[in-house]
């Protein structure tokens, strides 16, 4: 459906597959679930090394084989990070309900963003009367979008979060050069 995997397992076996991960507007639940692969992480680390990721503290994504994106696109910073990943990763994977379909953050899409900000920052006691406008702050998009509405995405792993087993199956298929396949009971949207 979307593009074929471009990394060739035989060739890259000599060097480790470079993987970057990040969370845009997400809850890091998908990252926690990634850790649920438990001791299999030792197998993974044999063939994989991490670039930018919450587990490396590398700030910017360099050239990578695989990028895993959690979370949806909610603000301008998300857009910049997502573009950086798309520019640097051969294969980009949306993982988790938010990245795949907008998820929980997108449930604000029926609200006017001005009304929402005013209600939070102006209409409540003790918080002042101004919507924060520091240029350091990323601006919110009027609607929250799944990542494939902003950049081209190669693969999708649904789930909130996808289970450790689901992630493991998908990533090992990919690394082995198979077309990744998820079916019952690994394929879940909730």
């Amino acid at each position: 459906m979307d593009t074929q995997v471009s990394s060739q397992p035989q060739k890259v076996a000599k060097r480790k597959i470079r993987v970057a991960t990040t969370s845009l507007s997400g809850c890091f639940g998908c990252h926690m679930s990634l850790l649920d692969i438990d001791e299999r992480i030792l197998q993974l680390i044999e063939v994989v090394e991490f670039d930018r990721s919450p587990i490396t503290d590398i700030k910017h994504c360099g050239p990578c084989d695989i990028g895993l994106i959690e979370g949806s696109v909610c603000n301008s910073e998300n857009v910049h990070v997502l573009r950086e990943f798309r520019d640097n990763c051969n294969v980009l994977i949306a993982f988790g309900a938010c990245a795949v379909a907008g998820g929980l953050p997108a449930q604000r899409n029926h609200l006017d963003i001005g009304d929402a900000l005013r209600e939070v920052y102006c209409d409540r006691t003790g918080l002042g009367k101004q919507i924060p406008n520091d240029r350091e702050l990323p601006l919110l998009l009027d609607k929250v979008h799944p990542i494939n509405e902003v950049v081209r995405v190669d693969y999708f792993i649904p789930g909130c979060p996808p289970s450790g087993d689901t992630i493991w199956k998908f990533v090992t298929d990919l690394i082995a050069g198979h077309m990744p396949r998820l079916e019952h009971p690994l394929l879940k949207f909730d």
Partner: peptide, 25 residues
């Protein structure tokens, strides 16, 4: 590939309510 929606336009409402027009906006 180009985004499904107009990214620049999708910040317009936020620019309006924060009165920002800097480069990062």
């Amino acid at each position: 590939f180009l985004p499904a929606f107009d990214l620049e336009l999708s910040l317009a409402r936020s620019r309006e309510v924060t009165h920002r027009d800097d480069a990062d906006a």
